[in-house]
Simulated assay, not measured.
Amino acid sequence: MSARPLIMGVLNVTPDSFSDGGHYLAPEDAIARGRALVEAGADIVDVGGESTRPGAEIVGVAEEIARVRPALEALSAAGITTSIDTMNAETARVALAAGTLYVNDVSGGQADPELLRVVAASETAILIAGHWRGRLDAGDSLAHYADPVSEVVEELSRIVAAARAAGIPDDRIILDPGLGFSKTGAHNWAILRGLDRLTALGFPLLIGASRKRFLGEMLPADAEVAERDLPTAVLTALIADSGIWGVRVHEPRASARALDVWEHLRS
């Protein structure tokens, strides 16, 4: 029987994230939101200070650190497991010093190769390496695949090789196929149908489908972004049997309840 996937709650300390930008910029709001995510069922709080949506402004490292450090320090001090969502080595270094366990890099170490060495230098830090072909643009210009699953597997394998070369042991690597990153809705669905080929790589797998455009495409055109939480939760339950390590979601409560149903059905 597959273990219950962990739930990673999203905490965007940004003005421009696609679904909740600007809501938690003030440190006290970010800290309160982090606590609320845990109360709603999150096992990990993933704190990010730079949006990765198409066309998002690139944030200076000093600004990124200023945004995320108060929440990371306060939540870690409260015993909450935290993750830093960053592509920058110096931000990762500061986060680890604040008590963060996971470094969630959507670029898999490609945006700043020094990040891999920062993770390797830690005795406990765990790298979550995403599949990435570059920063997103409005036209999905890099979203071209002959076989999405095979190509993502191949490109993630190269990311693993780079992480190993930097000194990160296999038991401190988690992979993320990067749904929505240089991928159309059809590509995302193909990857979700082929999760067995991704888990066959032998690494824990994090899935971040929450509120993404391909789920919104199933809803009425005027639906609010938060209405994507229900399909997100349904998807969480549907893929739990595939052996994934965790899901990254904006609203943990719905996915936690979905996993409760999954556990009851399985037992």
Rank of each mutant, 00 (worst) to 15 (best):
L6I: 09
G21V: 05
A233G: 05
L72V: 01
N12Q: 06
R53V: 08
L101N: 03
A77E: 13
V10G: 05
E217S: 13
E73A: 15
A138R: 15
D112F: 00
G130P: 00
L219M: 02
L205C: 11
F203A: 12
E114H: 00
I128F: 05
E123G: 13
R69C: 03
D43F: 02
R67L: 08
A129H: 01
A256R: 14
G21P: 07
G99V: 02
G109N: 06
V261T: 11
V225I: 14
V103D: 01
A78G: 13
V59W: 06
L136P: 09
L179S: 06
A163M: 05
F181H: 12
W262P: 02
L201C: 00
G202Q: 04
R35F: 09
P113F: 01
G108N: 03
R53G: 02
G34P: 10
K212L: 02
L11Q: 03
V261G: 08
A200D: 12
A254E: 11
G79C: 05
K212Q: 02
A221P: 01
A89Q: 01
A226N: 12
L205W: 08
V149S: 06
P252F: 05
H144R: 15
Y24N: 15
T184D: 04
A66Y: 03
S83L: 07
A66P: 11
I31C: 10
G79Y: 03
I31R: 08
G139Y: 10
I80T: 09
G55M: 10
R253N: 11
D241K: 14
L265M: 12
T124S: 14
S76L: 08
I173D: 02
S157N: 12
G185A: 13
D229K: 13
V160L: 07
V152Q: 05
A120M: 00
A233Q: 08
R53E: 00
A36F: 10
L116G: 06
A254K: 15
A26D: 14
D170K: 11
R211C: 13
L127V: 01
A42C: 11
R133Y: 00
R117D: 06
V94P: 04
L142A: 15
F214L: 12
G216E: 09
R53N: 12
I174M: 10
T199K: 12
K183M: 10
T91D: 00
V153D: 04
G109T: 01
D229A: 15
A111E: 14
G34I: 10
A56W: 06
A56D: 04
A190Y: 07
A74R: 13
R35Q: 14
E90L: 10
L238T: 11
I65G: 01
I128E: 01
I244W: 03
V59T: 13
A62R: 15
L192K: 10
P27L: 02
W245Q: 06
S210A: 11
P220D: 12
R257K: 15
G60S: 15
A71E: 00
G243Q: 07
Y24V: 05
K183T: 04
E50P: 05
A42R: 09
E28T: 12
Y145P: 04
F203G: 01
T86D: 00
R158D: 14
I65H: 03
T236P: 07
V106W: 09
V152I: 09
I173W: 00
M87F: 15
A121L: 07
